[in-house]
């Protein structure tokens, strides 16, 4: 596979995962704002923009229309429109490598989105987000059912799960000081809402209840989102999938020894597989999460060094 193609596929995975995450976070946050309009709305929208990775320059003050800025503003590289647009541009670059169904679903999603934007043809914001969410799910579905499960598919998955683990870790880093510092251990209803919101941001509320019942404690929320082996939006699960995707690529590309990449990814995977929540809470938790982010960044750099932006002379020497 061409390196440029691998690059594009990886970013299709990342951008669409990012769009999906933003949609959920936005939906949940808008809901929470309805519940608690009185408490420091500017602090919340500030944090929201952090979570959604809005560029610093746009973060000043309270935006008049948060929805418009997060959904449609293409000047905002974190907006849903920008992510879907970027994914589509990448898909256009590799149209011969993805299935026609994939291209059609993504193209349709993009055209729908542009039409909703220009004609304001959605009843409520919630409807709008739901429609976009559905479109993304559709793409994921046809990706799994129509694309050859070879190298290209693994690159899309690598991108998707890299983005997902990064997003979860970032979300927790930013939530941690607010949601988990409970003065005197008194649990208020507002606190409860925060946790439910956090779980919902990861589509985790129902799954959480199945495992722990609605009896929500900070330890359980963290344990679930970080270490649950079966829940698709937990950090551990995402890193497992990332590891699988990388192994898949590695199997197809026997020529190259990728010791360093395999070691790094394996190390991260193992550390999550064998971690216990008590240990994590005993240490500097935010620091731990930041370390996970750093390791992910390193893994991405190695993917690029190995498959995509390797130097010509290294390649000729093999």
């Amino acid at each position: 596979m061409l390196s440029r193609v691998a690059d594009s596929l990886y970013w299709i995975g990342r951008y669409l995962e990012r769009a999906e995450h933003s949609i959920r976070v936005l939906d949940v946050s808008l809901n929470l704002m309805l519940e608690r309009p009185e408490t420091r709305p500017e602090g919340r929208s500030h944090r929201l923009m952090h979570i959604l990775m809005v560029p610093k320059i746009l973060q000043r003050g309270e935006p008049d229309d948060l929805v418009d800025m997060m959904c449609f503003d293409v000047a905002n590289s974190a907006s849903i429109a920008a992510c879907i647009g970027a994914a589509r541009e990448n898909a256009r670059q590799v149209r011969d490598e993805i299935s026609s169904e994939q291209w059609q679903k993504l193209n349709q999603l993009y055209h729908n989105m542009m039409e909703m934007r220009s004609e304001q043809s959605y009843a409520t914001v919630s409807d709008l987000l739901q429609t976009l969410h559905d479109g993304l799910h559709l793409f994921e579905g046809v990706t799994d059912t129509t694309m050859l499960h070879g190298e290209g598919w693994h690159f899309i998955r690598a991108g998707r799960y890299m983005e997902r683990s990064t997003a979860i870790a970032t979300l927790l880093v930013l939530y941690y000081p607010h949601a988990f510092n409970i003065p005197g251990g008194v649990i208020e209803s507002t606190q409860y809402l925060e946790w439910v919101g956090l779980l919902r941001c990861c589509t985790a509320f129902e799954a959480f209840c199945t495992v722990y019942t609605t009896d929500i404690t900070p330890e359980r929320v963290l344990e679930f989102l970080l270490l649950n082996p079966l829940f698709p939006h937990s950090l551990r699960y995402s890193v497992n999938c990332l590891f699988d995707a990388l192994s898949g690529i590695q199997t197809e590309r026997r020529r190259y020894p990728s010791d360093e990449l395999a070691r790094r990814a394996g190390k991260l995977q193992a550390s999550l597989s064998f971690a216990q929540i008590d240990e994590i809470l005993e240490q500097d938790t935010a620091g731990y999460l930041r370390d996970v982010l750093e390791q992910s960044r390193m893994i991405q750099e190695l993917i690029y060094r190995l498959y995509i932006s390797y130097s010509v002379d290294t390649a000729l020497a093999v």
Partner: peptide, 18 residues
Amino acid sequence: RDLLVHDNIVYMRTTAGL
């Protein structure tokens, strides 16, 4: 940008090398 010439031979950059 996917192609390069080395010793008058054309190569393409792939994930498995040139």
